[in-house]
């Protein structure tokens, strides 16, 4: 039984218990998030390319906070759900999660450190594959400061300030975004002058970014910004012992006071 068949069965079973399941629908070759309500719709179930389904869940829960829903989650989406739940963006009490493991190719493309879900999952689909090290981030780590500067300057100079990185990010949910604040990011300047726009975003995703790469995938200028976020994630792990998207109970370090003896 291939992955799609297995997923179809899992979603079909879940549909008997919940009001709807959020998954991908393939309609004439184009894949998009969809809320499946009936078993008959499942012929159109899709697998890839991935979309940030937790963001869809948030959208639906905004209107229907009480609805019993199911959601198909890859590893990154599960991590995203955990971080969103910590910040009260989704309510996991009424949500059933079907885990979908990524294939080795998908994990390779995403340079994914954990290409399978394991925390919130109620049903598993697909075989677990090995984590893939983030080579872009590692290369960057090896570089001298001046080399990094010229690398990022050449990348950030391509920015057309479309805010796609922010719009695509399931973790970016602030109703008022600092990146639209005139004080920090001047209007009418494209590319946004270094280091304002991109480093502000890097700071704001610190402790939230789970490395789903949605920002990078939707960037028209192909800026590999997740490499920067991955390095920050590693550093925060060392500094505070915090890894986003691993445990529902772990509180993000930036919202907690320090544990110090006075």
């Amino acid at each position: 039984m291939n992955r799609l068949e297995a997923l179809r069965n899992a979603v079909g079973e879940l549909l008997d218990k919940v009001e709807g399941v959020i998954a991908l629908r393939n309609k004439s070759g184009h894949v998009a998030p969809h809320l499946f309500r009936e078993r008959e719709e499942l012929n159109g179930l899709g697998l890839s390319p991935k979309y940030p389904l937790p963001a869809t869940l948030r959208l639906i829960q905004n209107e229907y906070p009480e609805a019993k829903l199911g959601i198909v989650c890859r590893g990154c989406e599960e991590r995203g759900l955990i971080e969103m739940a910590k910040r009260n963006q989704v309510e996991l009490g009424n949500v059933t999660v079907i885990g979908l493991a990524c294939t080795a190719d998908e994990a390779e493309e995403c340079r994914c450190a954990k290409p399978y879900p394991s925390v919130l999952v109620d049903a598993h689909v697909g075989e677990r594959t090995e984590p893939v090290p983030d080579r872009v981030a590692e290369e960057l780590r090896q570089k001298e400061v001046a080399e990094r500067l010229s690398f990022w300057r050449s990348q950030f100079d391509k920015c057309i300030k479309c805010y796609a990185c922010r719009n695509a990010c399931p973790q970016c949910f602030c109703p008022e975004c600092t990146l639209e604040e005139e004080l920090w990011v001047e209007r009418g300047r494209v590319p946004p002058p270094f280091p304002s726009f991109h480093l502000i975003r890097a700071m704001h995703t610190a402790g939230k970014c789970v490395g789903c790469r949605e920002c990078e995938l939707s960037c028209p200028a192909h800026i590999p910004m997740t490499a920067l976020y991955a390095l920050i994630r590693q550093e925060m792990g060392e500094m505070f012992g915090y890894e986003p998207g691993v445990d529902l109970e772990d509180q993000p370090p930036l919202v907690l006071p320090m544990e110090v003896e006075i």
Binding site: E19, G20, I22, R25, K27, H30, A32, P33, H34, L35, R37, T56, L59, I60, E63, Y64, A67
Partner: peptide, 8 residues
Amino acid sequence: MEYRNVLT
């Protein structure tokens, strides 16, 4: 409760 995406 109906959610879908329309290609355009």
